[in-house]
Design a protein around this nucleic acid. Sequence first.
DNA 1: GGTAATCCTTGACCCAGATCAACCGGAAAG
DNA 2: CTTTCCGGTTGATCTGGGTCAAGGATTACC
Lengths: 248, 248
Amino acid sequence: MTTQDLQLLAHDCGTCPIRHRAVCARCESTELARLEQIKYYRSFQAGQTVVWSGDRMDFVASVVSGIATLTQTMEDGRRQMVGLLLPSDFVGRPGRSSAAYDVTATTDLVMCCFRKKPFEEMMASTPHIAQRLLEMTLDELDAAREWMLLLGRKTAREKIASLLSIIARRDAGLKLRQAKGSLVFDLPLTREEMADYLGLTLETVSRQMSALKRDGVIALEGKRHVIVPDFDRLLEETGDDSDGGYLN
Amino acid sequence: MTTQDLQLLAHDCGTCPIRHRAVCARCESTELARLEQIKYYRSFQAGQTVVWSGDRMDFVASVVSGIATLTQTMEDGRRQMVGLLLPSDFVGRPGRSSAAYDVTATTDLVMCCFRKKPFEEMMASTPHIAQRLLEMTLDELDAAREWMLLLGRKTAREKIASLLSIIARRDAGLKLRQAKGSLVFDLPLTREEMADYLGLTLETVSRQMSALKRDGVIALEGKRHVIVPDFDRLLEETGDDSDGGYLN
DNA sequence: GGTAATCCTTGACCCAGATCAACCGGAAAG
DNA sequence: CTTTCCGGTTGATCTGGGTCAAGGATTACC
C-alpha cells in the first residue's frame, strides 16, 4: 500500500520532488491506490504538441520527466508563454473538457495521465486530492503573479536575470537563501522560448545574455550551458527584493 | 438552514453573484452553517490599505461590496497590480500566515472575513469548501494567464480596450456573447491604477483613452463614466480572438 | 564532401511608450 | 473668494527594445 500511496498523482516517488512527497507523507487513505488503476503514461518528443488550445482534453496529467510549456497565441501570431511545466507539475483542469492553452513538449517528455472522468470521481470521494490540488494551484497562482510583475515592470536585463534564477533554483531544488556560491545548469529553452516566456523578442534575449556574459554575471559554454559564478550577484540583477523566494 | 447555506463564504445571497450561487445550489451539508459562527465583517474607506505585503494575515475573506486590488511593489517603487477583487472574489490563502501582496481598497469596501484557523478546520472536514475554492482558484489562474498575455504582448491601445471590456463585462455580469450593443459603466480605477493594472504609465493610459474616444470606440462623461456604443467594436480593439471569454 | 536547416549573434535603424513638464478643472480648505 | 490639492490631459523629447537584415556555428541529410 505504501508503494501505491507513494505513486499518488503520478509516478515512482524515488524521483519525486518535494511537492509530491508532501502529498505522500500526509496521505493515509488506501483509496488512493485507485489512482493506480486509472493512470497511464504518454511520451512525447521534443517539439511535439501535447494538445492545442480549444482541443478536447479528456485527461489531467503530471509531468514525470522533461519540460512542457503552456502558451497562448494571438490571431496575428504573437505568442506568450503562460506556464512552464517541470517534473511534478500538474496540467489540466478538473471540470473543463477542452484545453485553454497550447501544451508543447520542449524536451522529450513523459507525462502521467489520468482520464478525467474517473479522476473527478476520485476527487469527489477523496478530500486529500482536492486539498492537495488546491495547494498546488495556489502555488501556481503565486508564480503567475510574480510573472506578471516581471512582464509588466521589469527591464529586459532584469527579466533575463529573473528567468535564469528561476531555472537555476528549480533545477537545483534550492530555496533562495540556500543558494550561495556558484551554480551550473543547462537552459531547457531556446532563445525564442525564453523570449516567449519574458515578453521579449529573441534578439533582445540574445543581446541581454551577451551583456550579462560581458559583465561577468554569467558565463556560457556553448549556447545552453550556463555557469553562475555568484548567485547573489545574479539575484541583484533581477530587481527582486533580496528576501522573498518564489518557491515558498 | 437554507438561509445559512446561502451565506456560504460570505454574505447575503440576495446580492450574491453567480459564483456563490453555484456553491449554494450544490451545497447540502448543514455543516456550512458553522461558517456563520466564524465570520465577521470589516469595512474600509477608499484608499485604505487592508494589509501590507509581508504582514501577518490571520484571516481569509470574500469581498461583499466595493473593489480591492492586489499589488506588488519593487524596491524602487515600480508597482504592478496582480489582482483586482470585485464583489464575491476571495482573498487570502489557507495555509499561509502572511500576506504576499498589498491589499488596498480602491473604493469603500466591505469584506466578510473568516479567521484562518477555524476556516482551515472547516475546510478539512467539509470537502465542498476545498472543491469550491479549487474551482475559484483555477478561474483566477486562468484570469492571471490572460493577464500575462496582455502584459507581455499587447499594445497600449489593446491593453486599454481589454481592461475596459473586462470591467464592462464583469460590471454587467454578462458573458461575452450576450454583450451586444451599447453598454455604460463607471470606471472603478484612477488612471494611475489602470496603469498599474496594465503595465503602463498613467500618461499613456490617458493618451490612449483620448485616442479611443477620438476614434468613437468609447465616449466619456467626466473622467470616469464610460459609454460603449458598440461593444463588438471595443472587442475588436482588444486583439483577442473573437470567440473566447474570460469568464468561462 | 556539399547543402540545408536550425539556432544563435550582431549591427543599423526606428518607433511605441516612457519621461519630463506645463497646465486644466473641480472639489475641499481656509 | 482665493488657494491648494488631486486627478487628469496634453505636448516635447528621449530611449529601450522592436524590426529588419546579414552572417556564424552546429548538426543532419544527401
